[in-house]
Design a protein around this nucleic acid. Sequence first.
DNA 1: GCCAACGTTGGC
DNA 2: GCCAACGTTGGC
Length: 155
Amino acid sequence: MHYWLFKTEPDEFSIDDLKAKNDEIWDGIRNYQARNFLRDQVALGDLVFIYHSSCKQPGIVGIAKVIKTAFADPSQFDAQSKYFDAKATPDNPRWISVTLEFVEKLRIIPLTKLKADQQLADMHLVQKGSRLSIQPVRESEWQYILDKYTSNSLK
DNA sequence: GCCAACGTTGGC
DNA sequence: GCCAACGTTGGC
Protein backbone atom coordinates (compact mmCIF):
# COMPACT_ATOMS: atom_id res chain seq x y z
CA MET A 1 0.00 0.00 0.00
CA HIS A 2 1.35 3.35 -1.06
CA TYR A 3 0.13 6.85 -0.44
CA TRP A 4 0.10 9.71 -2.91
CA LEU A 5 -0.72 13.34 -3.41
CA PHE A 6 -2.39 14.36 -6.68
CA LYS A 7 -2.71 18.02 -7.60
CA THR A 8 -5.67 19.46 -9.39
CA GLU A 9 -6.79 22.96 -10.21
CA PRO A 10 -10.24 23.34 -8.68
CA ASP A 11 -11.34 25.56 -11.56
CA GLU A 12 -10.76 22.54 -13.81
CA PHE A 13 -11.70 19.69 -11.51
CA SER A 14 -12.28 20.00 -7.77
CA ILE A 15 -12.86 17.65 -4.87
CA ASP A 16 -16.54 18.58 -5.13
CA ASP A 17 -16.55 17.46 -8.75
CA LEU A 18 -15.00 14.15 -7.68
CA LYS A 19 -17.57 13.76 -4.94
CA ALA A 20 -20.40 14.46 -7.37
CA LYS A 21 -19.11 12.04 -10.01
CA ASN A 22 -17.86 9.46 -7.48
CA ASP A 23 -14.98 8.46 -9.74
CA GLU A 24 -12.82 10.03 -12.40
CA ILE A 25 -10.17 9.15 -14.96
CA TRP A 26 -7.12 11.16 -13.91
CA ASP A 27 -6.02 12.34 -17.33
CA GLY A 28 -3.84 15.11 -18.68
CA ILE A 29 -0.68 14.28 -16.75
CA ARG A 30 2.08 15.43 -19.11
CA ASN A 31 5.21 15.24 -17.01
CA TYR A 32 7.49 12.25 -17.34
CA GLN A 33 8.29 11.87 -13.66
CA ALA A 34 4.61 11.96 -12.77
CA ARG A 35 3.84 9.61 -15.67
CA ASN A 36 6.40 7.12 -14.38
CA PHE A 37 4.78 7.06 -10.96
CA LEU A 38 1.40 6.39 -12.57
CA ARG A 39 2.84 3.70 -14.80
CA ASP A 40 5.10 1.90 -12.35
CA GLN A 41 4.02 2.48 -8.79
CA VAL A 42 0.43 3.60 -8.30
CA ALA A 43 -1.37 0.41 -7.22
CA LEU A 44 -4.93 -0.74 -6.73
CA GLY A 45 -6.29 0.45 -3.40
CA ASP A 46 -3.62 3.09 -2.85
CA LEU A 47 -4.92 6.19 -1.10
CA VAL A 48 -4.46 9.68 -2.47
CA PHE A 49 -4.57 13.14 -0.98
CA ILE A 50 -6.39 15.46 -3.38
CA TYR A 51 -4.66 18.84 -3.45
CA HIS A 52 -6.04 22.07 -4.88
CA SER A 53 -3.41 24.16 -6.65
CA SER A 54 -3.40 27.48 -8.49
CA CYS A 55 -6.29 28.83 -6.46
CA LYS A 56 -7.04 31.21 -3.61
CA GLN A 57 -6.32 28.70 -0.90
CA PRO A 58 -4.02 25.89 -1.99
CA GLY A 59 -4.09 22.80 0.21
CA ILE A 60 -5.18 19.23 0.79
CA VAL A 61 -8.94 18.98 0.45
CA GLY A 62 -9.81 15.30 0.44
CA ILE A 63 -8.96 11.65 0.00
CA ALA A 64 -9.48 9.33 -2.94
CA LYS A 65 -8.71 5.70 -3.71
CA VAL A 66 -7.16 4.12 -6.78
CA ILE A 67 -9.73 1.79 -8.37
CA LYS A 68 -8.05 1.26 -11.75
CA THR A 69 -4.33 1.34 -12.49
CA ALA A 70 -2.11 2.32 -15.40
CA PHE A 71 -3.87 2.53 -18.73
CA ALA A 72 -3.29 4.72 -21.76
CA ASP A 73 -4.62 8.23 -21.10
CA PRO A 74 -7.47 8.52 -23.63
CA SER A 75 -7.03 12.28 -24.01
CA GLN A 76 -3.69 11.83 -25.80
CA PHE A 77 -5.55 10.37 -28.80
CA ASP A 78 -8.34 12.96 -28.86
CA ALA A 79 -7.59 15.66 -31.40
CA GLN A 80 -10.19 17.87 -29.74
CA SER A 81 -8.51 17.66 -26.35
CA LYS A 82 -5.96 20.16 -25.13
CA TYR A 83 -4.01 17.12 -23.99
CA PHE A 84 -3.80 15.67 -27.51
CA ASP A 85 -0.36 14.34 -28.38
CA ALA A 86 0.26 13.72 -32.08
CA LYS A 87 3.25 11.53 -31.28
CA ALA A 88 1.21 9.08 -29.21
CA THR A 89 -0.49 6.07 -30.77
CA PRO A 90 -2.65 3.35 -29.21
CA ASP A 91 0.17 0.89 -29.96
CA ASN A 92 2.71 3.15 -28.37
CA PRO A 93 1.01 5.43 -25.87
CA ARG A 94 3.05 8.08 -24.10
CA TRP A 95 0.80 9.09 -21.28
CA ILE A 96 -0.84 7.14 -18.50
CA SER A 97 -4.02 7.55 -16.47
CA VAL A 98 -5.44 5.89 -13.40
CA THR A 99 -9.01 6.06 -12.11
CA LEU A 100 -9.75 7.51 -8.68
CA GLU A 101 -12.80 7.02 -6.53
CA PHE A 102 -14.01 9.60 -4.04
CA VAL A 103 -13.43 8.59 -0.42
CA GLU A 104 -13.97 11.68 1.66
CA LYS A 105 -13.74 15.40 1.78
CA LEU A 106 -11.55 17.02 4.43
CA ARG A 107 -11.67 20.45 5.92
CA ILE A 108 -8.91 22.08 3.89
CA ILE A 109 -5.38 21.64 5.22
CA PRO A 110 -3.75 24.76 3.80
CA LEU A 111 -0.31 24.66 2.21
CA THR A 112 0.78 27.36 4.66
CA LYS A 113 0.17 24.99 7.59
CA LEU A 114 1.94 22.11 5.90
CA LYS A 115 4.90 24.37 5.14
CA ALA A 116 5.09 25.62 8.71
CA ASP A 117 5.12 22.10 10.17
CA GLN A 118 8.66 20.91 10.89
CA GLN A 119 7.46 17.30 10.94
CA LEU A 120 6.62 17.65 7.26
CA ALA A 121 9.80 19.40 6.13
CA ASP A 122 10.76 16.45 3.91
CA MET A 123 7.47 16.34 1.99
CA HIS A 124 7.94 16.93 -1.70
CA LEU A 125 5.05 19.37 -1.66
CA VAL A 126 6.80 21.86 0.61
CA GLN A 127 10.18 21.75 -1.10
CA LYS A 128 11.25 24.83 -2.96
CA GLY A 129 10.24 24.71 -6.61
CA SER A 130 8.08 21.61 -6.16
CA ARG A 131 5.90 21.26 -9.23
CA LEU A 132 5.30 17.54 -9.44
CA SER A 133 1.59 16.87 -9.88
CA ILE A 134 1.77 13.22 -8.79
CA GLN A 135 3.93 12.68 -5.74
CA PRO A 136 4.48 9.91 -3.23
CA VAL A 137 3.64 10.53 0.41
CA ARG A 138 5.45 8.57 3.12
CA GLU A 139 3.24 6.44 5.34
CA SER A 140 4.51 8.34 8.36
CA GLU A 141 3.55 11.64 6.75
CA TRP A 142 0.14 10.32 5.74
CA GLN A 143 -0.62 9.17 9.27
CA TYR A 144 0.77 12.31 10.84
CA ILE A 145 -1.32 14.58 8.61
CA LEU A 146 -4.48 12.63 9.34
CA ASP A 147 -3.80 12.60 13.06
CA LYS A 148 -2.86 16.21 13.40
CA TYR A 149 -5.05 17.99 10.86
CA THR A 150 -8.20 15.93 10.47
CA SER A 151 -10.84 14.08 12.36
CA ASN A 152 -11.60 11.32 9.91
CA SER A 153 -12.21 7.62 9.84
CA LEU A 154 -9.10 6.47 7.97
CA LYS A 155 -6.61 6.75 10.79
C1' DG B 1 -0.11 39.64 -13.05
C1' DC B 2 4.63 38.73 -11.46
C1' DC B 3 8.30 35.83 -11.46
C1' DA B 4 11.27 31.94 -9.67
C1' DA B 5 12.01 27.35 -10.51
C1' DC B 6 11.71 23.73 -13.53
C1' DG B 7 11.08 21.10 -17.87
C1' DT B 8 11.36 20.74 -22.89
C1' DT B 9 12.97 21.80 -27.44
C1' DG B 10 16.04 22.22 -31.03
C1' DG B 11 20.20 24.21 -33.29
C1' DC B 12 24.82 23.34 -33.37
C1' DG C 1 25.62 16.31 -25.56
C1' DC C 2 25.54 21.32 -24.58
C1' DC C 3 22.86 25.08 -23.63
C1' DA C 4 20.02 29.14 -24.92
C1' DA C 5 15.43 30.05 -25.70
C1' DC C 6 11.05 29.15 -24.70
C1' DG C 7 7.04 27.22 -22.18
C1' DT C 8 4.76 25.82 -17.82
C1' DT C 9 3.75 25.58 -12.96
C1' DG C 10 2.00 27.54 -9.12
C1' DG C 11 2.57 30.47 -4.91
C1' DC C 12 2.10 35.02 -3.81
